[in-house]
Design a binder for these strands. Structure first.
Lengths: 220, 220
DNA sequence: ACTGCCATACTTGTATGGTAGTATGGTGAA
DNA sequence: TTCACCATACTACCATACAAGTATGGCAGT
């Protein structure tokens, strides 16, 4: 199976990754022409990726003027946190009621890997594992579609969390909360699980105001 | 201001409206060529609209084979209801705490219009007013971005609700619930408001199984 | 020095021809 | 009859040319 993804999808995936990782800074001007040259494809697939990114609010297209990476909208960041809090509280309550064993195993393994990564001070890996942890929760209660929709808002939240990485991630607390949540699921303690999740997610934007002062050019 | 929207946006908007209203039935094959002829534009803007619709799951693109209107995924419909329940319960609690007067007025007017439309047996108008009612709630507590993201899942939920229109919408109950919710917001009774919202949204898919039997070709 | 105009070099938006992969129907051989 | 093969007519995908709107810098006139 040499099934190669379409050029459009490749460009879209790569650009999105670069934007969310802040490799492409908020406000950076993009042009169809320029991007098509760097990716060595024509303008058509580039344009297709711009359309998709614009729909997610990751780029802003100004007709006949230009396209650029969107600034981080702190209102959207807060809304993303709000959405996740409401949905993840409900999801973890469901998980406490009923959660597949194999998924529970995955959660346990995930937390173990988190502990390892923390030892290695590997922030990037921790970030990925954190994402995986929450995704596994949604999959375990069969709410994958919900998780996918959240990702759209999450792209904005994640950009500010990436900024956070450069300051003080204090992964220790987050990792401990993950462990406690797994424990709560195991013991079917929904109230405790919900409370843990609420505290957990409140940390994700605890320093939004600070970041906004520190990187004023990145925010709207 | 003769500012005309781009051809791509026009095609996208019109196709989406046709799909959600079931004017284009689930499973209907679409082709860039064919659609470009009916809209009298080239294939490029049509293709652009397909990309956007595919991202929302309203059409399915099979590379080199064809594109067609997606079938209604009843799991997604249920997830959409789940999402709305969690988020709207939280939103109406916020509204009970604090809600702008002008927005409250809008809600009141909206309910009045609903009563009128119900007299006229105007189901389509009721549907629009119902959407407006909930959107106003989100706007009043400054969660517009959240509402926009919900719309993506809502497209699937709405297709099944449109089917419902042809059977028995019993708008009376829904309208009464809207009235009660406004009253609860006025009297800052968050617990009652949340309970009302929960019951209200549970009605939206009360007959999903029936619809699935009645229109098997429309569902996945 | 300052202002108004315009050529020019950008940008995105649209149209179109060509390419490669896929389904289909017919034909000929076993 | 049945099966393998192939011509053909689709499809989405991509490259490219052109159109139309916008910012910019220089130049002429005041």
């Amino acid at each position: 199976m040499h099934s190669t993804a379409s050029a459009g999808s490749v460009v879209y995936t790569r650009l999105k990754q670069q934007i969310v990782s802040l490799e492409l800074q908020p406000g950076t001007p993009l042009s169809e022409k320029e991007v098509s040259l760097t990716f060595e494809v024509s303008r058509t697939p580039v344009r297709e990726s711009f359309v998709r990114l614009a729909q997610e609010g990751l780029v802003i297209v100004l007709p006949q003027r230009g396209t650029r990476v969107s600034l981080i909208d702190s209102e959207l960041v807060e809304e993303a946190r709000f959405m996740r809090e409401q949905l993840e509280k409900a999801v973890i309550r469901l998980a406490c009621d009923c959660f597949p064993d194999d998924m529970l195993t995955l959660l346990g393994n995930n937390v173990s890997l988190q502990l390892e990564s923390m030892e290695r001070q590997d922030g990037k890996r921790m970030f990925e594992l954190d994402e995986d942890f929450h995704r596994i929760l949604f999959e375990g209660v069969r709410k994958r579609g919900t998780w996918n929709v959240i990702q759209q808002m999450n792209a904005h939240l994640n950009r500010s969390r990436i900024l956070w990485l450069s300051t003080d991630p204090h992964w220790g607390v987050l990792c401990e909360q993950h462990q406690d949540m797994v424990q709560a699921i195991r013991s079917h303690d929904a109230d405790r699980a919900e409370q843990l999740m609420k505290e957990h997610l409140s940390l994700s934007i605890s320093n939004l105001a600070t970041l906004k002062e520190q990187y004023p050019d990145y925010f709207k």
